[in-house]
Design a binder for these strands. Sequence first.
DNA 1: TTGTAAGCGTTATCAG
DNA 2: CTGATAACGCTTACAA
Lengths: 327, 327
Amino acid sequence: MVDVARRARVSLKTVSRVVNREAGVAADTAERVCAAIEALGFRRHDGAAHLRSGSTTASVGVVLMDVADPFYSALTRAVEEVAIGHGFLVFAGSSDEDALRERQLALALCARRVDGLLVVPAGTDQRYLRAEVAAGTPVVFVDRPGVGISADAVLVDNAGGVRAAVEHLAAHGHRRIAFLGDTPAIYTARERLRGFEHGMAAIGRPDPRLIEMGPHTPRSVQAALHRFRSERHPATALVTGNNRITVLALRALAAMRGWHPAVIGFDDLELADLLRPSLTVIEQDASELGRIAAELLFARIAGDRRPIRRVVLPTRLVPRGSGELKR
Amino acid sequence: MVDVARRARVSLKTVSRVVNREAGVAADTAERVCAAIEALGFRRHDGAAHLRSGSTTASVGVVLMDVADPFYSALTRAVEEVAIGHGFLVFAGSSDEDALRERQLALALCARRVDGLLVVPAGTDQRYLRAEVAAGTPVVFVDRPGVGISADAVLVDNAGGVRAAVEHLAAHGHRRIAFLGDTPAIYTARERLRGFEHGMAAIGRPDPRLIEMGPHTPRSVQAALHRFRSERHPATALVTGNNRITVLALRALAAMRGWHPAVIGFDDLELADLLRPSLTVIEQDASELGRIAAELLFARIAGDRRPIRRVVLPTRLVPRGSGELKR
DNA sequence: TTGTAAGCGTTATCAG
DNA sequence: CTGATAACGCTTACAA
């Protein structure tokens, strides 16, 4: 910027004025400055500007599980959309369900002075964010609530969704319903299991042998399904706890001949409607989740000091065929 | 930091030493400083540190088409992985195939002084990046080459993949092969069309009535398929130009009774193997694309001054059934 | 082992 | 309308 000033034969401040489109610069002076900027290929250093002005960095950080998972990538995209609308940029990182990585990412983002943080907690303790929140960085948790810290959270009705799925299967005559969930270390997995147990309790006693929590691999899913099938009273229906598990289960089922349980998956899949039978799912709206969380975050960034909020979005059962197979 | 220094009754520099784990600080002094840091909830301002030290911002920018598209989200994840390995953070943004947005994103990223830029060009002119490259910010183009600027590019063999698909269909007796591609404004769409035409030229003359380029909507795809079917000599096989179009085409085909052309899609789909018939695809490795591009970028960031490189990754035909249907 | 002074690139303040 | 000077929070260079 000094170079530009020298070349345009004006002071530093005048260049700054031109760059920031401040009023009160003579047209010909501005002209000269612009020419110098052009000639020197000058580009303002945003970081330095923020440092001095103490203004915002116009960026938000997002820590999620895995950008490559369709659920989280849809969420990220929605956040990005809201951010762009506010003239903000998005820093994103995947924790890969690793508490340490979540923490490192979140703190690194804070050290960069992001104006706000959106976090899908992987670990079971977010106390490390207390200092940041106290220092004024708004944090909004998405998909799962933060633990050990009071902050906004935007979630979906996990339990209600699974419960509705169980009721739906029961209405089609099923009593031997199996559940294939993710590791109970994950909040959503616990909630979905709870919904399953509630739903089952309404039609009798849930059979623990028909419940298998993760983490799952293709092999573990395959093994669980074989067990469900070889029970004295085999399962006639299956509820899967997330889109990863649904895919593994469908693949394993396709390889098993002569057993066709009804299936309902948690979270939609892109080609679900093209499978035969089409896949019935418990739909959760990742975009909406991201949009609402981002808007809440921007409200906080803008100074909203209202009490902590916990928003729970509904889930919706989408019957397509696989969940309507009779017992 | 001054506050910490005051509280610990040491100089600014000593605090800096402790924060940066520099050697040569007495244990008890360090102790006192740490206590002060703890008490005041001090967190270093990375931006200020970079400003003075002139060091890197330890961040890279990624401008792509749409993070929510599985192809690009897999790519993003791979980039992230490489970045984390280097201790870098990733700024990502979607251009949504809009040239203006691509430009704004890229320049905003540069103003933040990212150490390098990974760009999937949406527009047809990347000259606006010349100044940045001249100023020393390495740029690597991914999936599509940049125009009007000399920079590295990591691409896949689009034409070769489609050509192989056509040959594969021809080997199964097909001559009336239709192509449903994306808008020719997109480099990859043009390349894939070129591959199609080459492939067709080898088995006769390509029929322009069996080619329909985008942009596509569910309706346009439906209409195109109906035309392909109602030709005097209906198409017996179909090649789709990307994963979005493949999904639209499969959905439209499922709604059309009595016509079952062989289908090969460009780019894999998560449930492709579970469809009936299973979907034959031209596979491109998004993760590998992202990984290689990121590694090239980090090499440039590290000072690699070798000549501009253009890397072209192979594509691979994955026969699963839909592409092996006889005429 | 610790401290002082200068300066990174920008904007704020206040004077001409 | 324009400019000199200080300051943002930190690190570097050099002393003590």
